[in-house]
Design a protein around this nucleic acid. Structure first.
Lengths: 159, 159
DNA sequence: TGTATACTGTTGATCTTTACAACGATCAAG
DNA sequence: CTTGATCGTTGTAAAGATCAACAGTATACA
């Protein structure tokens, strides 16, 4: 006998031959891995994304954060609450427009962001391990080309 | 002025420079597109996947279908109900093991599968349009390499 | 034969996540 | 001062996925 008596239970080739199908499945797999990894720090990838936006420098208001990440504004409220109680960000009323909240990263927030970057990097290295360095760069370039077409907040607007 | 007075609301480069992030986002985008496209036919991509499994020839039981696709068995029941009321599949008790249901595709099921294949193909062409043919093949090869590592039911078991 | 254990498909409950609509507070236009 | 729009917040509802129980059936074993 070869290995086991059972017939291998595998995905049909019709599906695995579709790049779109693989994209969906791998996206879900990457999501699950990220979630469980961030969970050990009591955070979500969402939190990382928010901190990354804040780190870009421009004083951000909640609306612009939500828009740039494609989050629902109602959803963002809860995430910011969690970040705030964790002492990673601060919310202040904008004096020039008292409807707005200016969100600012704290010092501990910056430290945490550094940790999250390290985590993200190791996560990525682990996930892309089956590919060599050149292949990884190619993959990223191809994904980026697709992203600029399909991810609304990813398009680099030309003048 | 360059274009608009507003600062471009974009994803931070920290995120777009991560292949894993792009994978997650593109996976979600692909999912949404697929869903809405299949919805117009009253079906889900799940249904397509099931029909694709059935088309592989081996008389399939519900458990093996669920396992090969990574679906929950309870979830599969509802999907098969929908496929059955649509007249695309039939469920029969397996005489040799009356616990099992043998699921079989009907003639109209095969016709529908052909339509779904065409839909899937056009969907994929549309989504991958930003890439030329060679790039598409490269992308698929890279995704497949990752899939064999990370998607449980995708590994090709060696002897 | 009889009994215990494991498996199959089904159902239902629960939990999480997401999306959407309404609300008070605030600003801008006329 | 009134009207309409915007910001953050809250709550609700709808959807999906996960998990645990259930009856029917098969297998193992005494």
């Amino acid at each position: 006998m070869t290995t086991s008596g059972k017939v291998a239970i595998r995905l049909p080739e019709e599906l695995t031959s579709s790049a779109l199908f693989l994209l969906k499945r791998l996206g879900m797999a990457a999501k699950e891995r990220s979630f469980s990894a961030y969970e050990e720090l009591g955070l979500h990838p969402y939190h990382h994304a928010i901190l990354a936006v804040l780190d870009e420098g421009t004083r951000e208001t909640q609306g612009s954060i939500a828009d740039s990440l494609g989050y629902d504004r109602g959803q963002l409220v809860g995430l910011l609450d969690e970040l705030e109680t964790a002492g990673l960000v601060e919310r202040r009323r904008d004096p020039s427009d008292r409807r707005r909240h200016v969100v600012q990263m704290t010092t501990t927030g910056r430290k945490t962001l550094a940790k999250l970057r390290a985590l993200s990097k190791s996560l990525e290295e682990d996930f892309l391990a089956p590919l060599d360095e050149r292949q990884q760069k190619v993959l990223h370039a191809l994904l980026l080309a697709l992203a600029e077409e399909h991810l609304p907040t990813c398009r680099r607007d030309l003048a």
